[in-house]
Design a protein around this nucleic acid. Structure first.
Length: 300
DNA sequence: ATTATTTGACCCCA
DNA sequence: TGGGGTCAAATAAT
């Protein structure tokens, strides 16, 4: 009950924030002096805020149905430390991270890491191809991080970005000094994935398989489709866990390494170039464990 | 010259 | 068997 209270509070505060932002926007629009960028930013914020609120609410609905799944996830976590050659072991209960970002760029959203494209495929039910990226330092630093980017079918301004594996390279943030004009706000959520849903398929046995998978959706909006699944959080200091939020958050750059299996949460402060608002930082917060979503990349 | 992208081949697994 | 992830040669960009 207390947790419920907490969540409700969060929802309310999100909505209030949205209202605030909307008012600002209204004001901006009245005084035509404001920049377009500013308005765009506000709109992005508003959308994100409402999305968060929606998610929180939808979460309550879901809670009953999928509250406790995945009782046994840990087992192989430590036990096999040095698993020699697990033959495509069993289920991959991975953690999935969902990023939501308002982006207009081509999916190559600045996320503080250097990526190298290594493939692109047409995907069965999708109109748009999926691009595959790996960390630039893969060979030099054995960094296994990989990501997939695919433009949304429904909204061309939306890019769905799926992250697999954690970065183990040093070159975390700071991509290049040059105009990190970077993007905007991101929200992240993370949850566990039910068994063979979105298969991670980290085929190699070379490096230690990271047990983490992350998915990121760029831009908001189309959460309409995937209503409840998407829990995105962008408000500071809140971590979702086992159906409840707790405040706890990390600020700073993308989570460094943590090659370990369990990522917990990470937040990213985004550059927030537009305007000077110091609070413009965006961050990623993540959640832990939640439902499994097939909707995500599924061709529905 | 070096580093990144493109793109069809290859390969694995459901 | 084919969908989708990766490789790698060719090509482009620096």
């Amino acid at each position: 009950m207390q947790k419920m209270m907490m969540e409700e509070k969060l929802v309310i505060s999100e909505l209030e924030l949205g209202k605030d932002l909307a008012n600002q926007l209204m004001s901006n629009l009245k005084h035509t002096s404001s920049s377009a960028d500013s308005n765009k930013t506000l709109i992005s914020e508003i959308l994100r805020v409402y999305q968060n609120a929606i998610f929180m609410l939808s979460l309550n609905e879901d809670k009953n149905t999928l509250k406790r799944r995945s009782p046994e996830i840990d087992d192989d976590k430590d036990s096999k430390t040095m698993l020699k050659k697990r033959k495509t072991s069993e289920k991959k209960t991975e953690k999935v991270k969902v990023f939501v970002a308002t982006g207009q760029d081509n999916g190559s959203i600045e996320d503080g890491h250097c990526w190298r494209k290594y493939g692109q495929k047409e995907i069965h039910g999708s109109k748009n191809p999926r691009a595959y990226y790996r960390c630039t330092h893969r060979f030099t630093q054995n960094c296994v991080a990989v990501k997939q980017v695919q433009k949304s079918d429904t909204d061309p301004s939306v890019y769905e970005v799926k992250y697999l594996g954690n970065h183990t390279c040093n070159n975390a943030t700071v991509t290049s000094p040059k105009a990190t004009t970077t993007t905007m706000n991101f929200s992240v959520s993370m949850f566990e994935e039910g068994r063979n849903r979105v298969n991670v398929t980290e085929q190699s046995e070379d490096i230690k398989p990271k047990k983490s998978e992350e998915v990121m959706m760029t831009n908001l909006e189309d959460l309409e489709n995937k209503k409840n699944i998407f829990r995105t959080f962008s408000f500071p200091n809140h971590e979702f866990e086992n159906g409840q939020w707790k405040s706890n958050l990390f600020l700073g750059d993308l989570s460094p390494a943590t090659s370990g299996s369990g990522i917990t949460s990470e937040i990213v402060t985004a550059p927030a170039s537009l305007e000077n608002s110091e609070t413009a930082d965006s961050y990623f917060s993540s959640l832990d464990n939640i439902i499994d979503q097939d909707w995500l990349w599924s061709a529905l």
